[in-house]
Write a protein that binds this DNA or RNA. Structure first.
Length: 305
RNA sequence: GGUGCCAUAGCUCAGUCGGUAGAGCAAUGGACUGAAAAUCCAUGUGUCCUUGGUUCGAUUCCGAGUGGCACCA
């Protein structure tokens, strides 16, 4: 018998196309609560069909947060999500025993579950200057810069990944302190219980679902949704599967059939990367998306079996 | 029915002047604490269609068979 009802955050995660949305809604209804979406692309209100945002009737069944709350022109990151999602949770837990967080953005989920280290905001000119230096002087030059200012991080970073190097240099130029000095490697404490539920299925089955869903998106008007966004194709928010491939079609680099094929392939690759990302997380309890009853039992038992 | 061409990785094909083979794509594995649907790294054994012959040795040359494509009847 449980005496004190702990507030519990139920995280429902899984690769793209596996069926998180409908299952999350059913579970939210069972638990009489709301959903915090954790999807870095569904936040952009201009992206709906291509990011498989819940249908209007679904949104009317259960209240969702963090869907369509940004414009493609906005800058956003995992740390901002951590802060805002925590605030939202605090509100939710005033009136609910449970909260649901669902989505496929692993870094964002981790930012909320484990926390993310505090870093300074990066000035856009600093970012721009470093990008320019990457283009003119090359990656090796930036690697050497990093070696001089942050030898510790130089030892552990993926030196071939420009984004990692740029991030570390940005932080140094903003603060004069090495990036590694900001990394605590510690999980933050959360004032609620967290259950992480992963959805998984046979790879072939998942890929089949993904391919089918892309066809459905095209039928639903994905091309028409993407076309007016083409002038903004340089924005990070539009470096998104389902849109970037259509931009190539709009630019006459290939035909529509090829664009659709590329969307399917890149969605499969994305799903694979998501699965790899969560594989090392031992706190996740895995279920097939059809196992709703088992999942609810697991949530209500409140145990990590 | 006749003639010609083709048959090699899941797909499209390259190649071996005879010493058992390699590209692109697909696929697979991995990394990842502020751009994360992003970014980065790694992985190529396959009856070289089947079967006889020549040869020390055949996926490679020759014959036959099977299948495909093209043209002629």
């Amino acid at each position: 018998m449980r005496i004190i009802p702990y507030k519990t955050l139920v995280v429902i995660l899984g690769p793209t196309g596996i069926g998180k949305t409908s299952l999350s809604i059913e579970i939210a209804q069972e638990l009489n609560t709301e959903i915090i979406s954790c999807d870095s692309r569904q936040m952009y209100r201009e992206l709906r069909i291509g990011t498989a945002v819940p249908e209007p009737f679904q949104l009317s069944q259960v209240k969702h947060h963090f869907i369509g709350n940004l414009s493609i022109h906005d800058y956003y990151n995992a740390s901002e999500f951590e802060v805002q999602a925590l605030q939202q949770l605090e509100q939710l837990f005033k009136h609910h025993q449970y909260a649901i967080m669902t989505g496929g953005s692993g870094l964002y989920i981790d930012a909320l579950v484990k926390g993310i280290d505090e870093l300074p905001a990066i000035d856009s000119t600093v970012r721009h200057d470093l990008k320019t230096r990457l283009q003119t002087d090359g990656l090796e030059a930036l690697q050497q810069d990093l070696f001089k200012i942050d030898p510790d991080y130089y030892q552990t970073v993926d030196l071939k990944n420009p984004k990692r190097i740029l991030k570390a240099l940005e932080v140094f130029y903003m603060t004069g302190k090495p990036y590694s000095s900001f990394r605590t490697n510690e999980s933050k404490h959360r004032p609620f219980k967290i259950l992480q539920i992963g959805l998984a299925m046979d790879r072939q089955e998942l890929y089949h679902r993904i391919n089918q869903r892309v066809d459905q998106m095209v039928e639903a008007g994905l091309v028409e949704e993407a076309r007016p966004l083409f002038p903004y194709n340089h924005l990070n928010s539009l470096n998104t599967v389902g849109y970037k491939e259509l931009f190539g079609y709009f630019a006459h680099e290939y035909d529509l059939d090829e664009a659709i094929g590329l969307i399917k392939r890149n969605s499969r690759h994305y799903a694979k990367r998501q699965i790899t990302y969560w594989n090392r997380n031992k706190d996740i309890e895995w279920f097939h998306p059809s196992e709703k009853i088992k999942i609810l039992d697991y949530i209500k038992s409140g145990l990590r079996t």
